[in-house]
């Protein structure tokens, strides 16, 4: 079965780029969200296998969204997507429960590698 992914980013451009990479690598995009608040809503609704989460977004940032999602589902697999210069925020997100991070601009091979790593770390239910 395909891996079901929720993509969270406030830039349409980024969502498109990430989703293209993931689809090319055999994953299924089940939903997209452009704010932290919507990410939490969509997560509850869709229960995806994986979430890619931007940090700087309107209406609840990515870190708070990670916290909320982890409250809902402690097994959630979230990978942070951040630009250079946001390392401190990435660390905070990891502390909040995110499994790993990707630095923009994305490199397809690196994206797949990180996702694979996340799934090896967290045993599937």
């Amino acid at each position: 079965m395909k891996l079901r992914v929720l993509i969270v980013d406030d830039a349409i451009f980024m969502r498109k780029m990430i989703s293209d990479i993931l689809i090319e690598n055999g994953m299924e995009i089940v939903g997209e969200a452009d704010t932290g608040a919507k990410a939490v809503e969509k997560y509850t609704e869709l229960r995806p296998d994986l979430v890619t989460m931007d940090i700087i977004m309107p209406e609840m940032n990515g870190i708070d969204a990670v916290r909320k999602v982890m409250e809902i589902d402690s097994k959630a697999r979230i990978v942070m997507c951040s630009a250079l210069g946001q390392q401190a925020l990435v660390q905070e997100a990891i502390a909040a429960g995110a499994k790993d991070f990707l630095i923009k601009p994305f490199n397809a091979a690196r994206v797949v590698e990180v996702i694979a790593k996340v799934f090896n770390q967290v045993p599937t239910v």
Binding site: F13, M14, A83, P105, F106
Partner: peptide, 9 residues
Amino acid sequence: HNLKGNSGA
């Protein structure tokens, strides 16, 4: 920030 990110990509 978004402009930076998108431009980087």
